[in-house]
Protein backbone atom coordinates (compact mmCIF):
# COMPACT_ATOMS: atom_id res chain seq x y z
CA UNK A 1 0.00 0.00 0.00
CA UNK A 2 1.49 3.38 -1.07
CA UNK A 3 1.48 6.21 1.49
CA UNK A 4 -0.83 9.13 0.68
CA UNK A 5 0.71 11.97 -1.30
CA UNK A 6 1.76 14.75 1.10
CA UNK A 7 -0.20 17.93 0.51
CA UNK A 8 0.11 21.49 1.65
CA UNK A 9 -2.56 22.75 4.07
CA UNK A 10 -5.71 23.96 2.34
CA UNK A 11 -5.21 27.56 3.51
CA UNK A 12 -1.66 27.66 2.13
CA UNK A 13 -2.87 26.34 -1.23
CA UNK A 14 -5.70 28.87 -1.25
CA UNK A 15 -3.40 31.80 -0.42
CA UNK A 16 -0.90 30.88 -3.14
CA UNK A 17 -3.49 29.90 -5.74
CA UNK A 18 -5.67 32.03 -8.00
CA UNK A 19 -9.08 33.43 -7.01
CA UNK A 20 -11.63 30.69 -7.55
CA UNK A 21 -14.75 29.11 -6.19
CA UNK A 22 -15.10 31.41 -3.15
CA UNK A 23 -13.58 34.74 -4.08
CA UNK A 24 -15.14 35.13 -7.53
CA UNK A 25 -18.76 34.43 -6.46
CA UNK A 26 -18.20 36.65 -3.40
CA UNK A 27 -16.98 39.40 -5.73
CA UNK A 28 -20.04 39.00 -7.97
CA UNK A 29 -22.37 39.02 -4.94
CA UNK A 30 -20.69 42.15 -3.56
CA UNK A 31 -21.02 43.86 -6.93
CA UNK A 32 -24.72 43.04 -7.18
CA UNK A 33 -25.30 44.22 -3.61
CA UNK A 34 -23.54 47.53 -4.29
CA UNK A 35 -25.45 48.03 -7.56
CA UNK A 36 -28.73 47.34 -5.75
CA UNK A 37 -27.76 49.79 -2.99
CA UNK A 38 -27.56 52.67 -5.51
CA UNK A 39 -30.63 51.67 -7.53
CA UNK A 40 -33.00 54.09 -5.75
CA UNK A 41 -32.86 57.80 -4.86
CA UNK A 42 -30.75 58.24 -1.71
CA UNK A 43 -29.56 54.65 -1.91
CA UNK A 44 -30.27 51.78 0.47
CA UNK A 45 -28.14 52.27 3.56
CA UNK A 46 -28.10 48.66 4.84
CA UNK A 47 -27.04 46.98 1.57
CA UNK A 48 -24.52 49.78 0.95
CA UNK A 49 -22.94 49.20 4.37
CA UNK A 50 -22.83 45.43 3.91
CA UNK A 51 -21.51 45.79 0.35
CA UNK A 52 -18.86 48.23 1.54
CA UNK A 53 -17.61 45.86 4.23
CA UNK A 54 -17.55 42.96 1.72
CA UNK A 55 -15.71 45.11 -0.83
CA UNK A 56 -13.15 46.10 1.82
CA UNK A 57 -12.71 42.42 2.75
CA UNK A 58 -12.26 41.45 -0.91
CA UNK A 59 -9.67 44.19 -1.41
CA UNK A 60 -7.81 43.11 1.72
CA UNK A 61 -7.76 39.50 0.43
CA UNK A 62 -7.08 40.17 -3.25
CA UNK A 63 -4.45 42.95 -3.20
CA UNK A 64 -1.83 41.28 -0.93
CA UNK A 65 -2.19 37.97 -2.77
CA UNK A 66 -1.73 39.66 -6.15
CA UNK A 67 1.16 41.90 -5.04
CA UNK A 68 3.07 39.08 -3.32
CA UNK A 69 2.43 36.76 -6.29
CA UNK A 70 3.76 39.46 -8.62
CA UNK A 71 6.81 40.13 -6.47
CA UNK A 72 7.87 36.52 -6.06
CA UNK A 73 9.50 34.45 -8.79
CA UNK A 74 7.46 31.40 -7.70
CA UNK A 75 4.24 33.42 -7.84
CA UNK A 76 4.45 35.03 -11.28
CA UNK A 77 3.89 31.84 -13.34
CA UNK A 78 0.64 31.28 -11.45
CA UNK A 79 -0.51 34.82 -12.22
CA UNK A 80 0.31 34.35 -15.92
CA UNK A 81 -1.41 30.99 -16.12
CA UNK A 82 -4.60 32.12 -14.38
CA UNK A 83 -4.61 35.74 -15.57
CA UNK A 84 -8.35 35.69 -16.34
CA UNK A 85 -9.26 34.72 -12.78
CA UNK A 86 -6.91 37.35 -11.36
CA UNK A 87 -8.34 39.99 -13.67
CA UNK A 88 -11.96 39.11 -12.87
CA UNK A 89 -12.13 40.82 -9.44
CA UNK A 90 -10.67 44.24 -10.46
CA UNK A 91 -12.74 44.08 -13.65
CA UNK A 92 -15.91 43.54 -11.61
CA UNK A 93 -14.88 46.40 -9.30
CA UNK A 94 -14.34 48.73 -12.27
CA UNK A 95 -17.69 47.80 -13.84
CA UNK A 96 -19.56 48.29 -10.56
CA UNK A 97 -17.80 51.61 -9.87
CA UNK A 98 -18.48 52.83 -13.42
CA UNK A 99 -22.16 51.80 -13.47
CA UNK A 100 -22.72 53.12 -9.95
CA UNK A 101 -21.10 56.51 -10.52
CA UNK A 102 -23.00 56.95 -13.80
CA UNK A 103 -26.30 56.23 -12.02
CA UNK A 104 -27.10 53.35 -14.36
CA UNK A 105 -28.75 51.04 -11.76
CA UNK A 106 -31.30 53.70 -10.76
CA UNK A 107 -31.90 54.78 -14.37
CA UNK A 108 -32.53 51.19 -15.49
CA UNK A 109 -34.75 50.37 -12.52
CA UNK A 110 -36.76 53.55 -12.97
CA UNK A 111 -37.09 53.03 -16.74
CA UNK A 112 -38.37 49.49 -16.18
CA UNK A 113 -40.84 50.71 -13.53
CA UNK A 114 -41.90 53.97 -15.17
CA UNK A 115 -45.02 52.64 -16.91
CA UNK A 116 -46.31 51.07 -13.69
CA UNK A 117 -45.51 54.21 -11.65
CA UNK A 118 -47.24 56.40 -14.24
CA UNK A 119 -50.32 54.17 -14.21
CA UNK A 120 -50.47 54.30 -10.40
CA UNK A 121 -49.91 58.07 -10.37
CA UNK A 122 -52.75 58.67 -12.82
CA UNK A 123 -55.07 56.34 -10.93
CA UNK A 124 -54.36 58.06 -7.60
CA UNK A 125 -54.57 61.59 -9.02
CA UNK A 126 -57.98 60.91 -10.61
CA UNK A 127 -59.25 59.18 -7.48
CA UNK A 128 -59.64 55.81 -9.20
CA UNK A 129 -57.27 54.39 -6.62
CA UNK A 130 -56.94 55.56 -3.01
CA UNK A 131 -53.82 57.09 -1.57
CA UNK A 132 -52.12 54.65 0.66
CA UNK A 133 -49.20 52.84 2.18
CA UNK A 134 -46.92 49.98 1.26
CA UNK A 135 -47.25 48.38 -2.10
CA UNK A 136 -45.07 47.16 -4.93
CA UNK A 137 -45.09 49.25 -8.11
CA UNK A 138 -42.89 48.07 -10.94
CA UNK A 139 -39.51 47.12 -9.47
CA UNK A 140 -39.88 49.41 -6.45
CA UNK A 141 -41.31 48.78 -3.00
CA UNK A 142 -43.24 51.93 -2.18
CA UNK A 143 -44.01 52.96 1.41
CA UNK A 144 -46.55 55.70 0.59
CA UNK A 145 -48.48 57.09 -2.38
CA UNK A 146 -49.95 60.54 -1.68
CA UNK A 147 -51.37 63.45 -3.68
CA UNK A 148 -49.25 66.54 -3.30
CA UNK A 149 -49.45 69.98 -4.91
CA UNK A 150 -51.04 68.89 -8.18
CA UNK A 151 -49.00 65.71 -8.43
CA UNK A 152 -48.44 62.38 -6.78
CA UNK A 153 -45.55 61.50 -4.49
CA UNK A 154 -44.14 58.00 -4.01
CA UNK A 155 -42.13 57.35 -0.85
CA UNK A 156 -39.41 54.71 -0.98
CA UNK A 157 -38.74 52.76 2.25
CA UNK A 158 -35.22 52.28 3.67
CA UNK A 159 -33.66 54.82 1.33
CA UNK A 160 -31.18 57.43 2.53
CA UNK A 161 -29.61 57.55 5.99
CA UNK A 162 -31.59 60.16 7.94
CA UNK A 163 -33.46 61.76 5.04
CA UNK A 164 -36.35 60.18 3.15
CA UNK A 165 -36.42 59.88 -0.63
CA UNK A 166 -38.83 59.03 -3.38
CA UNK A 167 -40.26 59.86 -6.78
CA UNK A 168 -42.83 62.51 -7.62
CA UNK A 169 -45.09 62.91 -10.66
CA UNK A 170 -46.07 66.44 -11.65
CA UNK A 171 -47.81 66.41 -15.08
CA UNK A 172 -48.64 70.14 -15.02
CA UNK A 173 -45.10 71.42 -14.52
CA UNK A 174 -42.49 71.98 -11.84
CA UNK A 175 -43.30 70.93 -8.25
CA UNK A 176 -44.20 73.59 -5.67
CA UNK A 177 -41.54 75.10 -3.39
CA UNK A 178 -41.49 73.32 -0.05
CA UNK A 179 -39.23 74.20 2.89
CA UNK A 180 -38.05 70.70 3.80
CA UNK A 181 -38.36 68.98 0.44
CA UNK A 182 -36.06 69.40 -2.51
CA UNK A 183 -36.86 68.15 -6.01
CA UNK A 184 -34.55 67.11 -8.83
CA UNK A 185 -35.96 66.67 -12.32
CA UNK A 186 -35.54 63.21 -13.82
CA UNK A 187 -37.41 63.16 -17.13
CA UNK A 188 -40.83 64.27 -18.40
CA UNK A 189 -43.22 64.75 -15.46
CA UNK A 190 -40.97 62.77 -13.11
CA UNK A 191 -38.91 64.17 -10.24
CA UNK A 192 -36.82 62.68 -7.48
CA UNK A 193 -37.51 64.16 -4.05
CA UNK A 194 -35.59 64.33 -0.80
CA UNK A 195 -37.09 65.34 2.52
CA UNK A 196 -34.51 66.45 5.08
CA UNK A 197 -34.82 65.14 8.59
Amino acid sequence: MTPPEPRLPLLTRALTGPPGRWLLPLGALTGLLLLYSVSAPGGYFGPALLGGVLALTLAVIWIPRFVVGLARADGRPGLRRHWARWAAVPLMAAVVAGLGSAGVPQDVRFALSRASLEQAAQAVSTGAEPEGGSRRIGLFSVSSVVKTGGGVSFGLPDTGFLDTHGFAWFPAGAPPEEPETSYEHLEGPWYEWRRTW
Binding site: T16, V60, I61, V68, G69, R72, D74, G75
Partner: peptide, 20 residues
Protein backbone atom coordinates in the same frame (compact mmCIF):
# COMPACT_ATOMS: atom_id res chain seq x y z
CA UNK B 1 -3.44 46.24 10.15
CA UNK B 2 -5.74 44.14 7.94
CA UNK B 3 -3.69 44.38 4.69
CA UNK B 4 -0.44 44.04 6.69
CA UNK B 5 -1.72 40.83 8.31
CA UNK B 6 -2.88 39.51 4.92
CA UNK B 7 0.51 40.33 3.36
CA UNK B 8 2.17 38.40 6.19
CA UNK B 9 -0.25 35.48 5.65
CA UNK B 10 0.48 35.29 1.91
CA UNK B 11 4.26 35.60 2.37
CA UNK B 12 4.29 32.83 4.99
CA UNK B 13 2.10 30.69 2.72
CA UNK B 14 4.57 31.09 -0.17
CA UNK B 15 7.47 30.28 2.17
CA UNK B 16 5.61 27.21 3.40
CA UNK B 17 4.97 26.15 -0.21
CA UNK B 18 8.64 26.71 -1.13
CA UNK B 19 9.80 24.67 1.88
CA UNK B 20 7.34 21.94 0.93
Amino acid sequence: AAPAAMFAAVVTAYEQAAAF
